[in-house]
Each structure stands twice: as C-alpha cells, then as structure tokens.
Design a protein around this nucleic acid. Structure first.
Lengths: 220, 220
DNA sequence: ATCTATACTGACTCTCAGTCATTTTTTGAA
DNA sequence: TTCAAAAAATGACTGAGAGTCAGTATAGAT
C-alpha cells in the first residue's frame, strides 16, 4: 500500500474535479465543441491551471475514458460472483455492458475517442493510456473466465480457444452496442429505423445467436 | 436518365479531383492533421475554391465516406451473383468487407468519422449524407437477401427475422473488423496482442461461430 | 470588341489550443 | 510571528488553421 502525501492527494482530487467539469461541459455540447476555456470556467480554475494537471486537451479526454473503463470493468467483475452457468455469465456481461453504455453515454463516446487518440504516439505511451489498457485487459480476463467456466459446465463449446473467443465476443459486442447506442442517442443511419428492434433485447438475441447458432445443420 | 450539362459534368469532375487530393493528404498524416491549405495545394486550387465545392472540411470527409460506401456496396452486390448457399454468401460478404477495409483503410477511417459527423444536424441533412444512407441501405438489402436465400436452402435457421439478423450481423461484423483494423494499422490496445489470432481467419471463425453456434445443447 | 456571369483567388478574420511572464499562495526555517 | 523561497495559479498573448469575401480572371453571349 503506497502512502500518499497530502499534496499528492489534493492534486489527485483536483484532477478529478477537472474531469468532472470536463464531463459537464461535454454533456452540454459534445466533445467537438467543448473548449478549454469552458472547462476551466466550469472547474473554477484558470485555463493555465488545466495544463498543470493535464498535458493537453486530448489527455483530459483520455482521463474520462480511463474513468469509464474502470467503472465498466468493475461492473463486469461483480458478475463473476453470481452462481450461474458460463453462458449465463456471458449473457449477463453483455447486458451489463449495454446498461453501462445507456446510463453513461459520455463514457462510451470517450471510448470511441480513445481509439482515435492513441494513434498519437505520445498519448499512447502515457500513464493514462496504460491505465486504460490495464482496465481493458482486466475486463477481457473476466470474459475469458466466464468462457472457461462455461466450457467446464458444458454450456459453451470447448472447440474454440477461450481467449480467441473472448476477443471475438468483445469485438462483436462492441459493434452491436455501438449500433444500439447510435440508434438511441443521436442522428443515426436510417437503416437502423428499417427494423423495429428492441434495444433491451438485442444483446439477448445476439448472445442467443452466438450461443445456440443460427445454422440448422449442426455437425457436433 | 437525367442529361447533365457540360458545366455540371465539369463541376462534378472537379469535385472528384478535390476528393482525390484530400485522400492523398490524409494518407500522409491522417485525418486530424490534414489542413484545408494542404488539400488546396494538393488539388492545385486556392483554398477559397474548396469552399465553392464543399460546404466545409467535414463535408469533404463526408464525401470520402460516401465514395467508400459506394465502392463497398458495389463489391457486396457482386457476391449475390455467385451460385452458393446463403450461409456461404454471408461468409463471402464478410470476407469482402475485411478485404475492402484492408485495401482501403482510409475509407474505413472515413466511415468512423462519418458516424461522428452526423451528430451535426446540418451535415446529417445534407445530400452527401443521404447518399451514404442510400448505400448503407442497399448493402443491408444484399445481406438480407443472402439470409433469405440461406433460410430457403436450409443453410440458415429461419427462426429469426432476416432483417433483425441482418442488423446483428452488420453491427457485429463492424465491431470485429474494427478490431482487426486497429490491430493491423496503428497503435492499438495491447489486449489485441495477448491473443495470437490471424486476421485473415478471424472473419471465418466469427462467421463459423455465428453459423454453427458455440453452445453444446442445441434445442433444434 | 465589349459586356456579363461565373469561377477563382489569397489576404484577412476569428476561434481556440497551448504558453509563459507575472502574481498569489503556501511552506517551513529562523 | 516573520519572511524568503518554492509552488501554484493566472490570464494576456501567440500561432495555427477553418472559414470569408472583396477583388480578379475567364468563358460565353451579343
């Protein structure tokens, strides 16, 4: 356990307040139109002070993403406590993911930003990015655990590598939830309106398709 | 058939040249750091001229996205010509999607941009956005056709609504390919390196999982 | 050849991220 | 308690780049 000095704690707290302020500003007008001046005003500090706590604007956004990853990973970790089959655990994780995105749209938007931001080498190698990576890896571990449980209890086929399967589920779920998110929150591609699908059930349908398969001719 | 005047044709051609120039500039340094001055220089016109052909910078990006959608949709349409089972058609479409993204990373990046851009109402209601929507809807129709063929020939379960299934495949594939794309092209989340998966086969595995299911206890 | 409409130009404005000389606050040694 | 050094904070300033517009060039009509 690392003992932090009062200074360090105060500094960390101030950092959190700036992140809170940034989230408030972004909620009003979106990521694109949020300015450092606005964030400073909201945080009740000068613009210069922002740069004492964060390297640049992108790293504030990175910090939002980091907080989001942490929250999401936490909520996934809780799911492993349930006494359920592996497949049920995966289903619950998918539902938790969707719920998180619906309740915290700003974090989800930040995740999308994150993927663009890390093409910048300097940010990619920052401490904040490392924390995001760590959260993601942790989340992935929970998914793989659930898959392994499912392979043990027979609810999930054991012909795939659980890690590869984990990645596929991770990627595919992200795509689905991305779609669901856009449909709910903003201007979105009109094809999403052609089908009258219920958002609360789409993850269930998706996991069901993954789980039971959509083809008739099952070989095993 | 609408007969265009020479003027109109020249204008359209110039527009395409500007899009070409923008793509060249973006290839060099990415979307973020491309400037209107650079694009103008590359296109051998003045900066002001860019604004005679495009409303603003975002709409140039939108135009790139539109061209990309058109190309991708075209390549999907060709697949329906093959004499294959529905499931095979879907698999081929997935492969075509991946190939397109690998060969034209810039268009894929533009697609991602597009989804952010359309949160701006003005752009969302533009002619270019409408063209993107039309392409997307067309692509979706091809997927649904393939699914219907598969439900007829027995290669795909007919217990789902083909349209809903189409959306799920669309969303999930996007997520998977997004992941594959990031792994190949740029700084990317390190969890992608934890698993040594082959990109050329990931779509196959994904479609196989969708197609044959991952659960042991098949009810039908 | 002259006129008019359309296409084009690039210097200019404005906004905003990021900087830095200056001021304010905190610390802790005497 | 005092005060000098260090740390934190400020906000006017700078530079970059998107977008504008008064002025210029060109093509087509008469």
């Amino acid at each position: 356990m690392i003992k932090k000095t009062r200074k360090e704690r105060e500094r960390a707290a101030r950092k959190q307040l700036i992140i809170d302020a940034a989230i408030e500003v972004i909620k009003k007008n979106g990521f694109e139109s949020a300015t450092m001046d606005e964030i400073a005003k909201q945080a009740e500090v000068s613009k210069g002070a922002l740069y004492l706590y964060f390297k640049n604007k992108a790293s504030i956004y990175l910090a939002i993403s980091e907080r989001g990853s942490r929250l999401l990973t936490q909520s996934l970790s809780k799911i492993l406590l349930f006494e359920l089959s592996g497949l049920e655990l995966i289903r619950k994780m998918g539902q938790a993911y969707l719920k998180f995105v619906q309740q915290n749209p700003i974090y989800f938007t930040a995740f999308i930003y994150y993927e663009n931001l890390i093409s910048d080498d300097e940010l990619f190698e920052s401490e904040l990015a490392a924390a995001c990576e760590e959260s993601a890896r942790e989340a992935m571990t929970y998914i793989v655990r659930a898959l392994q449980i499912g392979m043990q209890d027979g609810s999930i086929k054991d012909t795939y590598d659980p890690k590869e399967l984990g990645l596929i589920i991770w990627g595919a779920s992200k795509g689905i939830i991305h779609m669901a998110f856009y449909k709910e929150n903003r201007n979105h591609m009109k094809i999403l309106d052609d089908v009258d699908f219920s958002l609360d059930s789409i993850i269930n349908n998706f996991i069901e398709i993954l789980g039971t398969g959509m083809a008739n001719d099952q070989k095993s």
